[in-house]
Design a protein around this nucleic acid. Structure first.
Lengths: 194, 194
DNA sequence: CCCACTTCCTAGATGCTCTAGGATTTCTCC
DNA sequence: GGAGAAATCCTAGAGCATCTAGGAAGTGGG
């Protein structure tokens, strides 16, 4: 019967390619099996179900994303770090739309807890913001603002949501500049005096 | 045979409820037919296909959203308008997750062009920003930043993406404050003199 | 070489989208 | 009120997806 040599790793890798090519919504067990020249049912020995496949892809993509960001941010601080972070983030989202879409799905909290990638993401993000001298809860608020803006921009851009006749990359650079200014002029939590 | 009295309007209204209850991804023709106690095939007299149903829901929800925003913004300007805009936006997204998710889908440009709701959205957004005295291309850049942040925040929040132990509403208020500051300190396009 | 394990298969249940064509109710207009 | 037109809802069925159960054929260790 000439085995193809399936494994969870190969499945996830192929799923990543498939998602990038056909869109995350069109990632199906059938399509993945077709890509390996194998029957659908065969994949269920390696992956529990479609949900499981998606989750694995999400964690895989999350890891790739944070690796890129970490490499870009390494050795930089302040505005340089912010720009590098943002650039790596958007680049990955545009380069791998299917993988990026995968990172948006809801994942079981238990899996998140022991996913080193996602913890690393938090560390790097908070670390980058330390240069701006924010304390909690402002720090968490700032992280949420950054995540929202980056994520929202990439989603809207890759969905073709920006119709106006203005270079999308230029708007991004401006947005990052604006965020830098925001972080420097952050409306800090008052310390009960005044 | 006792007709139920289907119509496009009733279908879209029921689809909106269904999407809010079961999630936009679980909005299916079958489920909608079940809700009316009718066979799947019957719906295809009113709606071309699932894609068509989704698009109609998206336009419907987009209209509802901008109506709320318009009502909130009316008679306000500057920071007050921004806060009202943001509040109405987030409120709708949290109150109607399925409808809000529908507004995110890609829609044919032709349909967008003759959708009064979406044009109104652009008008109101640009109008609100006029108070900050920005000129193009800064104006478009600012609109993109606002949309990205609002959208990204609501998506992440309703997906449970904010795990930290900090009130999500407080972070939102802070983000809106931060955006206001950003708009006031906007890094304007230089006019060729230094 | 044999046994256990893994890989991949066939077969089939279930659920979804969507088309074709028919029947029945409701509307329209004289 | 009644006949023709139109709209509404139906049955039947094709096609494709997920997923389970159980079986056959490769693979590796002792």
């Amino acid at each position: 019967m000439a085995r193809v040599g399936l494994s969870v790793q190969r499945l996830v890798a192929a799923a990543a390619e498939l998602a990038d090519e056909a869109g995350f919504d069109n990632l199906s067990v059938s399509a993945l099996a077709r890509r390996f020249g194998v029957k659908d049912a065969s994949l269920y020995s390696h992956v529990r179900n479609l949900q499981d496949l998606r989750t694995r892809l999400a964690l895989h993509a999350g890891g790739e994303l944070i690796d890129r960001i970490a490499a870009a941010v390494a050795g930089r601080a302040g505005k340089e770090a912010l720009t590098a972070f943002a650039g790596a983030y958007r680049e990955y989202a545009l380069e791998h739309p299917g993988r990026y879409a995968a990172t948006q799905i809801r994942i079981d909290q238990a899996l998140i807890a022991d996913s080193p990638a996602l913890r690393r993401t938090a560390e790097i993000t908070y670390g980058m913001l330390r240069a701006y001298g924010l304390a909690e809860p402002d720090l968490t608020d700032a992280v949420r603002l950054l995540r929202s803006t980056f994520h929202g921009y990439c989603v809207l851009e890759s969905a073709g949501g920006f119709g106006a006749d203005r270079d999308v990359g230029a708007s991004w650079d401006k947005a990052v500049d604006a965020l830098h200014i925001t972080l420097e002029h952050w409306p800090r939590e008052r310390k009960s005096d005044d």
